[in-house]
Design a protein around this nucleic acid. Structure first.
Lengths: 183, 183, 183, 183
DNA sequence: GATGAATGAGAGTTCATTCAT
DNA sequence: TATGAATGAACTCTCATTCAT
């Protein structure tokens, strides 16, 4: 019976990612339950609060993201790895950072953002790793810090618009991140 | 009493900009009324629908923005004008584009988005003007189009975070928008 | 300036008859003001309450009705006068009793229904006069009382439906009111 | 819990019949909830719209009415059956047609009036059946059609007033519906 | 006296959350 | 443990009524 519960939890999380991804915080818990194919009670049994559900969704998201980024970082060419991960984080399907915007909406003063923050930190660290390798290889400008890079990724991930326009915007930003002439 | 009414209308719009700027579409009309210091009925007298209020808020926003951008464009040095306006649009107080995100949320299929669209077009055109002047002056890379530039502005305007980090991120983007070595 | 006021009062009453005739009690005071071409304040200056306005409308209505009925009663043939007035009250344009239904909706426990009651009594008396003349002339069954006749008029006046159906229904009722075989 | 739900649904409908019977469309959904002893949310769970609640109430009403009329029609004497049913429809407790007036108020242009219309047709057909049997038995005037009869029933059912007066009014109408002398 | 802007109680409706089954 | 019915606070919107001009 434990495995049933876990399976349900996962289905709920997947549904939540769909729903909140589409409608943001305005997505309803009942819609999540419906798409997960469970009763509303089940959702609340696993996540005592809508907020908790949103957080868990984000954590799942960020964890996936960090793993992907880290895996990518293992590869050989540091510059390419950095740039590809940047691109993927901005527009990659399973890696979309969009959901994070949910957390930015309400002033997160509950103090219980820890879990999310931990996951976010993992992503940041993965980005940092990629960034410093790129810099050491001389393929990324030396004066860029994780802060800016991470912010740029998040900003672009949240932007809506034509895929091609996003791609060109990313090109520009990556150009901005390439080593300066004088370097 | 016409003047009173207009004053109230303005206070409502200002309050709406605050509220929707903070909480997005989830901000409540009642909160707007409270901050404006008027009764809920007054808000609805001026804007028959929440949607109408949101739209009016955005239009006001965009209009201001377009005016600022255009004024800035009159100045002499094309490159500096472009860059300063870019910065201002991203972080300028009365010019923040954040609200535009509201429009991206609901599928605006009412067909009555005309006014908003018109205002948005004005902003785009102002940006376009600045961009092409900058390009003609050889201070902005020639292959950039309004689409990307406008998207970058919006993406960064919506990003939350330290002011200084935003500034550095803008630096990077502007570097990306400067003429390429080979040019 | 007195005559202006009276003129406004009359326009308001006429508008009220239109509006409440169409939409019943659900008609709004503002709609009345709009159709009367006056401000909402003017309506409330003349009638301190919506209820008061409704009542005044009904009184005007009933007064007109009573006058028409009485005028009709002066004529020669008692039976024809009775039947024609009956018909007119049911479907006559300026004489429609429909509005009375408004009063029947809320339990009229304000105790201030006096004015309306007085007007209603005038109508009743006019009907009574016509009825008894008809009975004396042997053209209306002797055992009918005003109560039933008045109720039948009101019931039919409130009925919605094809004009021709109403007419045929009235025929049937008038047949029921004609002298019995044995009389 | 299905049975609880059904029980609540029924209580809501019963309360709705009371409330709308008293105050017409102006009766509030909250009052219905209060009288049913349930929360407002429960009312809306069962009937997604006030309109839907009103409709369901009417349908229930009409269905009951049609059944009663049809049961009555089975009896032997056609004339008596017709007259008794007429009386019952006008003043019978569980059979009062009053609610139908609700339908006459708003221009029912939603196109979804089907269910109500179907129920209304059933009532009409029951009346028609009784009428034609009465006519074949020579106990009801031959030239009367359902249209008038149905309208008379509705008109009298909606009339307010002393029970005895209503009864006498019905007597008159039934006299009008009896076979003409010459027949 | 007339005007119409402001008010706020109240109505319909939604949705996070609880709880009986 | 899962279910989904019940709950009620909160939200958008309406309208009778008041009041400054």
């Amino acid at each position: 019976m434990r495995s049933d519960a876990r399976a349900n939890r996962d289905r709920v999380l997947a549904a939540a990612e769909e729903v909140f991804g589409e409608s943001g915080n305005a997505g309803s818990t009942e819609e999540v339950a419906r798409r997960a194919g469970v009763g509303i009670g089940t959702v609340f049994r696993h996540f005592p609060t809508k907020r908790a559900l949103v957080k868990a969704t984000i954590v799942r998201h960020l964890t996936l993201l960090a793993e992907t980024a880290r895996a990518r970082g293992e590869g050989g060419e540091a510059g390419a790895a950095f740039r590809e991960t940047f691109r993927e984080m901005v527009s990659g399907a399973p890696a979309k950072l969009t959901l994070v915007a949910l957390l930015e909406e309400p002033a997160d003063s509950t103090g219980s953002a820890d879990e999310v923050e931990a996951a976010a930190t993992m992503v940041r660290e993965a980005v940092e790793e990629l960034l410093s390798r790129g810099q050491q290889a001389g393929e990324v400008r030396a004066d860029a810090t994780v802060d800016e890079v991470y912010m740029l990724i998040r900003a672009l991930a949240n932007a809506r618009g034509d895929r091609t326009v996003v791609d060109r915007a990313v090109d520009i930003v990556l150009d901005g991140l390439s080593p300066r002439r004088s370097e």
